[in-house]
Amino acid sequence: MILARHAGALLWVGRYLERAESTSRCLSYAANSITHLRADEARAEGELMVRTLGLQDELEAVGPLESQPQLVAFLLSDTDNPGSVVSAIVAVRENLRAVRDRIPIELWEEANGLYLRFPFLGHANAAPSGLHEVLLMVRRACLAISGILNEGMRRDEGHAFVVVGRMLERSIFTVGLLEASHSDTRGVTDATRMLRLTSSLQAYHRQFGNAPDPQGVVHYLLHASDLPRSVLSCLGRAEDGLTALGENSAALDRARRKAALLRARLSLGEIEEAMTTDPRATLQDFAGQLAGLAGDVHAAIVPPLGMATVQAQYVRPGRTDRPGDAGALGDTPAAGRTDGPLR
């Protein structure tokens, strides 16, 4: 048995951990690629990255990004941007702190250690020097935390919530990436970019050679059963976690059934079939349904007798997570029920 509050905190540990890792990977890619681009191209790449991460509303509050340091500050160290790497790290730590009695000590130490390596936290926003070292450090720490989660944590409900949170966040990110790539104002769908941003380039090369084509990559990132970051893999693992959790909770079992249906739609080719007509709207709708599923899981941790015990968490506006927000299952993608900004 797990307290509802602890379940909520661990679900969000999974989600924020994934965000910290994916955002730092995106930033690393952006910082690298921008150096080879003209100013207008660099600006477009920065905007695309913001869209990929669903941070358009947060950016609006800051204003347009005119330079690389601005982009770095926004995505890495801006504590006012709840979607920044640092904000995700703080949230991982705070949620772990709330469940400190039930997690391995090493897990807390690693998360706390990562937090303590950002001395500017709580002070003026400033990008640390040595951007790539910092991003590498974040990604390594995230991997270390993942390792402890996998190898050091008891396979109880708490672990299942972390896995479910992580897998749903990852699938939302991947679908969001595909959708943003289809809306690239530069008029291209950069296959290599999609693979790099999902850490899948090497795996793809080994399987398919060195000339990725956009359609093949989209299929790969959606369907590859041997790729831990494919949407199908993520949904499968989320469903496994929800299966264990749903045994004693009707609401979580409903979320499990929804995950199974989404996986089936993807697995049977329904999503890709719809993409032949309107890829962007289809991916928008799919991302919305995944976000809706994540919202359902959060809402399923309803404490008995109605008192709110689960801490409020940051949901990126571009990835609306309200339960049921994504439209009922079986809606055609063309119905366009989701209305995320800039989609």
Binding site: M1, I2, L3, A4, R5, H6, A7, R100, D101, R102, E157, L245, N248, S249, L252, A300, I301, P303, P304, L305, M307, A308, T309
Partner: peptide
Amino acid sequence: ELVEGRDLVVDDHKVYTRTIEG
């Protein structure tokens, strides 16, 4: 378990924790 007040509820003169299972 480490609980906060909001994790506990009293019903019929008994104290309960709020878990995901009830």
